[in-house]
Every structure is written in C-alpha cells, then in structure tokens.
Design a protein around this nucleic acid. Structure first.
Lengths: 351, 351
DNA sequence: CTTAGCACTCAGGAAGATTAAGTGCTAAAA
DNA sequence: TTTTAGCACTTAATCTTCCTGAGTGCTAAG
C-alpha cells in the first residue's frame, strides 16, 4: 500500500512525536511543531484516513493517535532515513571491540554490552544454532579420579563441553582409544545427523570395548542437541523506567521473556542472515512480546553461524538510530571474528 | 531482650496474621481469631508495648501493626516452632535429587529448582568460593588449530575452565611440557596464594621455553580470581505477584538485585557454614534488599566449600516452613554430593 | 490487672464537578 | 475541489468533597 507524500510526512511526524513522548499525538501538536504547511484541520482529516488505512490507532475517541505496528512497519520500510552514527559513537564501538580479545567468548558479550549502552534498551546475545554445524574435533579429558570432560569443537568455531562422572568400569587406557575412535567416526559429520542416530555411528567398536559407555554416549548426544543454546542479556533494567511498563501486564510479560528465553531463541533461529531483522509487536507470534520490538542481527561468516546479537525495546523505538547502530556493531563484530578466526559459544564463561 | 509469654503469643499471632494477609493487623482481629483469652483492649495495650520495644511497627496512627525486622528476628529465634516437612514433600525432594545424576553441575541447579517450587519464592544457587581451594590438577588441551583450553580442577571438586587463542609462537610440543610444569609447580597450592604472585611460581622455566606465554599465564590467573563465581536464580517470577511488589521501588530493587548479583555473592560469601542463615530486611547492608529476606545455606563437606543454595522472598516469609525446607534440601544435597564425590561449579552448563 | 466504652484519627473509596485535550463535522474561504 | 476556521461533542484525568470503616489510645468501671 502506497501513501501519498503528505500522508507519509504526517505519519512520520506522529511517529516521531509519539516516540518522544509516549503520549497519543493530536493534530494541533503536529500542526504547530512540525511545520508541514497544513492546518490542524487538514492534518486531522489525514490522521483519520491513516487510521482507516491501519497505520494509526486511537486509544479512545477523544484522544490523539498512536502508531500501529503496521504504521511502524511502513515507517521503517518506506519513510525513515537511517541516521548515520556519529564519529564518536563509531569510536566507542571500535574502541571496545578493538581491544585485543584473547577470550573469544568475550567478544559477543562485549558487542551486546555496547548495544545496551548506546541504545538504552536491553540487548541480547545468543549463541549460534548448531544444527548445521559439523564436528571438527572431539576431545575426552580425564579430570581427577572420577570425571571425564567431553569437548566438541564445531566447524563454526563453537565449543560445546560437558563433564560426566567417570565410571570405574571404563578403564583409563580406553579413553585414548575412544577419543581416536570418536574422532574417526564422527569428524566432519553434521550435528543433527549424529544426534538423530548416534548409536548407529558409535555402537560397533565402542560397546565392544566397554560395557558401560552409555553415560558417555548419552552426554555426547546431549551436547549435540540443538536446543542447547546460551542466551545473554544486558541492560534489562533500562526498560523498567519506560512509561509503557506502567501497564500491569507489560512488565510481567517482559520478565517472562527474560526468564523463559524461548521467544528469544526462536527469533534468533529464524532471523534472516546478513540482515537486520525487526519484529514489531504482534509481528512475532509470541503473546508476551506483543508490546515490544525485537531487533536481531544474525552473525555469519562464510556460511558459518556465529550467533545473534539483538535488542529488545518498546515498539516506540528510535529505529532511525538503533538499526544503524546494531548494523554497525554487528559488522565490526564479524570483522573482528574473521580476524580472530573462531568463535566460542560462550559456554565457558569464566569472567 | 526477653518477652513474657503473653507478648510472645501476641507477637506470634500478629506475624502469622500478617504473613497470611500482608495487611496491618488490628487488635480485634487477633482477639477474635486467635483465641488467646484476652480482650482486644488488652491485646491493644500489649501491641502498643511491643511497638515501643521495637517488635512491631505502625504504618500510620489509625492502622494496625506490622512486624518489624526485629520482630521477625525474635520470632525466628525464640518463638516459632519449625514445621516438619510432610512425607510428600520429603518424597518430592528425595525423588528429584535421587535421580542418577551424571552431570554433577545439574545437582545444585536441581536443588535450587526444588526450593523455588516448594516455597514459591525465588531460589538462588551460587558456586563455591574458591579462595581457600587448592589446585588439584591442571590440564591444557589443544583445540583445533588455534585454541587452547585451560582446565583447573580444585580440591573441592570445582572445575574452572577457559579458552584462549592459541598463539603460533607457542609450539605444540611445548604444551605437554607446560602441562607437566604447571602441575608440578602449582599442584596443592592455594588459589589465592597463586593469584597474588603467579609470576613467582611460574616465571623460571615457562618464560624460558617460549617468549609468548603471557596470555596463558594471564588467563590462568583469571581463573583463580575469587570473584569469578556463578549465580543461578529460579522462580524470580514467583515474587512478582506479591502485594509488596506494588510499591514502586520494591520491584526495581528486586530487579537490581537480580541484575547486579553483587549482594547475592556477598551474602553467600559471608554465610556461616553448616547453618541456615537468615537475613531479614535491613539486617544486611544492601539497600536494595531492605524489603526482602534472604536465606542462605552454605554447602560444605569435610571443610571443602561446595557452593550455597538460598532463597529470596518478602520479609513476610513463611519461616516456619521455609527454613526446614532449605535445611532438608541442603542436607540431602550434601549427602548426594558426598556420594558423587565431587562438585562441579556449573561453569560448564551444557544442559 | 483486665476490659468495656467512647472519642478520635486517618486511609481509601465513591460521587460529582471540572478541566484539558482532542475529535468530527459543517460551512466558509481559497 | 481542497483547505481551514469554528464549534459542538466526547472522554480520561484530576480535583474536591464527603463518607465509611478499621483501628487506635485513654478512661473509668469491673
């Protein structure tokens, strides 16, 4: 649906005014403050039209208008002009991400941190989807008397690792054999493929060597499960003081999002790569998110998924600024990862 | 300060009534519902006395009384009778903790989970203080082309681990040498001791072998830092619907506690071992906690710290029930850990 | 020492009035 | 035909006033 220029300018004005105040916007306000060259009456008529077309909403009959999700969508896609980052902002981002990062997992957290700081919303960082990763290396490490650490290095650089109780029936000298065997039979294989029928790949020799490899095999399998994704959030506090949080349920919904993390994982999974994705209110299926906007930016290098950074804020977001910021941060991050050569999924979060 | 029996019984009644309703309690309510055998007038007088003594507070002059922190303190220490857990509750706890837990880090999380479920408050689980731990074993594991995993096993069973970029100037054949050397020179040493002057312990041979071991040494050091403690929470949502959260600041304070975690770490550090510790409102120094009670139970076996489980809730907690619950869960947990032989501090959180 | 009785206090809610912001529509102006 | 001034109308929000109910402290009688 196309809008004529006047409608666009009015919609833009309403959105900017509403973004600034969080209050329904009236026609006179627009007429006075945004000299568009029309009287309040004309604007009033146009606002009525825009409402009919679905771009604006009216909380009640004698109130001003607020933008609908569709209104924001149109604004983002067809009206707003992205605001370039200031030299200063770029410097801050470059500065923080430039530091010689030895701990790779710190990188994505840092990026998330910057996002929260620069935007004043809550930022998220989500580990990569492992579904399509291939096993690059498996290491079994004996720890102390009774534990075994299983480490899987994936071809996207992510590391999954876990510790199980070392069972006495699994003789020490076999660990090396297992290690070799596991690498031999699983290297280069797809995570999902292994997960679906690990026994097929492993049964022959492994079960021959020792009767009690079941815990090991189980845990190995667990590490391959796709759902096993880490979520970080920063700046959740930033959202608490927003006026939209005054509505009873909004806050509860938000805390639900934080606590369950399901919605976040799901959105991160779906996000189209190489692009900043914006989900406004009802645009995503999660009831709890209906009053929020989520922006995600999936990080990818050479077809390898490296995780997702993102932002959560009110629908009334400063999109003009926020989208370029996340784009810039993501691009710097990917650049940095390319140099670093690998990415750790953050499951090893020694500070 | 001792109270006569009548005052005790009235204080107890007020606390129980207030716990149930979260509303100031009046003298007639007590007289009618808790047949203590005194008229409301007598109770009124006693309540005035109890207020003067600091055990009760009055929100405003024509309102009933609410228990002060001191009142709760006295109630816990000298009045209440702990309520035995029902057979059912014990079963639930035993059941969940009885499962054959292969993943040791799951254990403390499970315990925390149970606490949240059984009490309907928010539960916490905090990794062990490592200050007084000794190094039991160090492993360096090469991962892929360019990374090195450092794993430290401590004598309390905790495992600290981290990954650094593997530097080309650190030849592969040296890793084994390093490994041997690090174990040789650091095994049995106190974390804190090493941290304070790691170079003294490591410099000689290590720096001789390769010029660029600095990242490795730094990271090793990082892993020893005391502050590097993991905090889990469950059931934070449970607290949102409490009437006390209606007061603007209480909720903010709560979210602050969750987000910063400082207060939690601090309290876990200080808690006296082998006992359930209760911190009511202002009894702990953290401003944000002034409207909450925190209960901690430090887990210890043979002088080895294994972390802390705990609860956060309103001051108006059901102490009679909650304290035995946390005690029971903690004891079962310690029993379980004793069998398991070791405890993983949860930094390896593959689900 | 206990309690009945009573005057007093005060938060919270209901009812009503007022205000301010904004609308839609009509008719005049451009 | 489009724009705009003008105006009647709507409604949420706020303020005021009044009232009620829960609770108190104190006094005097039991």
């Amino acid at each position: 649906m196309l809008l004529d220029d006047r409608k666009k300018r009015i919609l833009e004005a309403v959105i900017e005014e509403y973004n600034a105040t969080a209050e329904p916007v009236g026609s006179t306000k627009i007429a006075n403050d945004y000299n568009l060259g029309f009287s309040s009456a004309t604007i009033r008529n146009e606002m009525a039209n825009l409402e009919e077309l679905g771009y604006l909403e009216q909380p009640h009959i004698s109130a001003g208008r607020i933008p609908s999700s569709q209104g924001y969508r149109f604004y983002i896609d067809s009206i707003m002009q992205e605001k370039n980052l200031s030299v200063q902002e770029k410097q801050i981002i470059d500065e923080i991400l430039k530091e010689d990062v030895i701990k790779l997992e710190t990188l994505i957290k840092d990026a998330s941190n910057i996002l929260a700081k620069l935007t004043n919303y809550a930022s998220i960082a989500i580990g990569p989807q492992m579904t399509n990763c291939k096993v690059e290396e498996i290491k079994l490490v004996k720890l102390g008397q009774d534990r075994l650490m299983i480490v899987i290095l994936a071809d996207n650089g992510a590391i999954k690792e876990s510790i199980i109780k070392y069972d006495g029936t699994l003789p020490e000298e076999n660990i090396e054999i297992f290690n070799t065997y596991l690498n031999h039979s699983l290297k280069g294989m797809n995570f999902e493929e292994i997960y679906n029928n690990i026994n097929a790949y492993v049964e022959n020799e492994l079960y021959n060597i020792s009767t009690n490899v079941i815990p090991l095999v189980n845990e190995l399998n667990n590490l391959l499960v796709d759902n096993n994704v880490e979520v970080y959030m920063e700046g959740t506090k930033n959202l608490l003081s927003l006026p939209e949080m005054k509505q009873e349920n909004t806050l509860k919904n938000f805390l639900n999002i934080i606590e369950t993390q399901d919605a976040l994982k799901e959105l991160a999974k779906n996000g189209y790569d190489g692009n900043v994705n914006v989900y406004i209110g009802q645009e995503n299926a999660f009831e709890d998110l209906k009053d929020f906007t989520i922006i995600t930016y999936k990080q990818k290098i050479n077809d390898k998924e490296l995780g997702t950074i993102g932002l959560i804020g009110p629908k009334r977001m400063d999109y003009k600024k926020v989208i370029p910021v996340i784009k810039y941060v993501g691009d710097v991050l990917q650049e940095k990862m390319k140099q670093g050569g690998s990415f750790d999924d953050g499951q090893n979060n020694a500070k």
